[in-house]
């Protein structure tokens, strides 16, 4: 099999907030159709890493290549990059004043300049894909947490991104609603989507991840297949963390 170039290629990424350095030289490649699962203690910099990838946070140093584009280069149209990197947030961040359909069509119409009919059709298909074909007219306030998160995923998918970043997509959900969101993510993986997932759902990681990355204090300590990281971690820090969550 010919090796394709990575979708996302991060080199020497550093990020400081004032005097505190939160990311201390991250190197990471994400290949097409790969699901990379990121774990690590609270405050280790997982969210910051994801947010640097579409420049919601401005990196302090290092390079990030997305689909061949240097996203930090001066001439780069960051909005064009962002619409090709989907992002799913812990707190959904749906627009409360718009229906599910409106949430999905906004960027289609404003960024891709699609006519209303076409935007509606694409959005309807995206909502169907996450199992919410019948909720097009519902406002976020009328949906359960799990449904809201699936609308948020549809919002990202409708733009046909090259990769989707998930930042703890199920952490704000009641336990009985987690399954529906994980199912959508599993379907996405089957369909060959490139994904980076920060999450504490270890069961999902074992079943679906190609690679698990363990972060601590702004560095990648260890990475490897799920079986290796969870079964036989090499580093003491990884072992301590894995012990803690597995016993949990």
């Amino acid at each position: 099999m010919q090796r394709e170039p990575p979708v996302l290629s991060i080199r020497g990424l550093r990020k400081s907030f004032g005097a505190t350095e939160v990311l201390r030289g991250i190197d990471l490649d994400v290949r097409p159709r790969e699901l990379v699962f990121v774990i690590g203690p609270s405050g280790s910099g997982k969210s910051t890493l994801l947010r640097c990838c579409n420049r919601l946070e401005e990196p302090s140093d290092g390079s990030i290549l997305f689909d061949g584009t240097d996203i930090r280069a001066p001439g780069t149209d960051i909005n064009a990059v962002r619409r090709r990197i989907g992002m799913v947030f812990q707190s959904f961040n749906l627009y409360p004043h718009m229906t599910a359909l409106g949430n999905v069509t906004l960027a289609l119409r404003q960024v891709l300049k699609k006519p209303r009919r076409e935007a509606d059709e694409i959005a309807a298909a995206a909502l169907a894909r996450v199992g919410l074909a019948d909720k097009q007219g519902a406002y976020p306030g009328e949906l359960s947490g799990g449904q809201q998160q699936r609308v948020a995923i549809a919002r990202a998918l409708a733009l046909e991104p090259k990769a989707v970043l998930f930042d703890e997509p199920t952490s704000a959900l009641d336990p009985e609603l987690v399954g529906s969101v994980l199912q959508v993510m599993r379907d996405l993986r089957e369909a060959g989507m490139t994904m980076v997932v920060v999450s504490h759902e270890m069961g999902f990681a074992r079943a679906a991840a190609d690679r698990v990355v363990f972060m601590d204090q702004g560095e990648i300590v260890e990475e490897g297949p799920p079986a290796a990281i969870f079964g036989a971690p090499q580093h003491a820090r990884t072992r301590a963390f894995v012990d803690q969550i597995v016993r949990h």
């Binding site: 919601l56 990059v81 707190s91 906004l106």
Partner: peptide, 17 residues
Amino acid sequence: PKGQWEAARSTGLGFLA
């Protein structure tokens, strides 16, 4: 909430949009 800005910007919407 800040998340509203971030969600919109992450889909490629500009500041004004």
